[in-house]
Simulated assay, not measured.
Amino acid sequence: MERLFERGLFASRWLMAPMYLGLVGALIILLYAFLMELVRFALSIPVITVDDAVLGALALIDLSLAANLLLIVIFSGYENFVSRMDLADHVDRPDWQGEVDFSTLKLKLVASIVAISGIHLLKVFMDVGAYSADKIRWMVIIHLVFVISGVLLALMDWISNHAKTLKKAAKAG
């Protein structure tokens, strides 16, 4: 009975697979948004200012970072929680695939969120007159919360890894 129960629990990981397919759908939506933004950007070339060029480029970078974040979550989440991908021999397989554990995934997620937040903040600074001082203050505060959260997550991982290293050294010595 216990063995059957455990096999059922283990098989339940496949309930995550449709979620990763859903994230692929979100990636398609981001691609559409990227293409629409690129077309809008390209059509503005005849009257574009330097600031508009930078803002347009930042919008495209922002969308590509969000897409990269989705790919990291899809690949590493699927491999960590559902099943290994049998693509070791594929020439285009990313070097990091199969090596991103849950801890590394958390750090990559937070780093990506900080980068995306920073780009949004930079876009605001490029057009600072369009925003109230209160809104800018809140955006800076939120960005700092992301940065501090990232640093604290990295510190917790470092402490955890350091403790594991010390524990292994104590057992060996």
Rank of each mutant, 00 (worst) to 15 (best):
R84Y: 13
L30I: 05
L155W: 14
I28W: 11
V110Y: 12
I141K: 08
R7K: 15
L166I: 09
R93Y: 03
G98M: 00
D62M: 08
I61K: 07
D51F: 07
A67S: 03
V54P: 01
A53Q: 00
L121S: 01
A11Y: 07
E37D: 08
Q97M: 13
H120E: 14
L71M: 09
L121R: 02
A26D: 08
M36Y: 10
A133K: 11
F125S: 06
A130E: 11
D51E: 09
A57R: 00
L122R: 05
V47P: 00
A26T: 06
V47F: 14
R93P: 05
A130Y: 10
V147L: 07
A67K: 08
S76M: 02
F10N: 15
L69S: 02
K108Q: 08
L69E: 07
A17W: 05
Y32C: 09
A172S: 10
E6Y: 13
W14M: 05
H162A: 13
R13H: 05
Q97C: 08
G22D: 04
K164A: 11
F41M: 00
L71W: 09
I45R: 07
S103H: 11
M36A: 14
I74D: 03
I29T: 00
V50M: 10
D95L: 14
M126G: 08
F146A: 04
I136L: 05
A59L: 10
G8H: 02
W138D: 04
L153N: 08
I48Q: 04
M156F: 15
M36E: 13
D101P: 01
P46M: 01
R3D: 12
A133G: 11
L55Y: 12
V54A: 06
A42G: 06
D157A: 14
G56R: 01
L23W: 04
V110R: 12
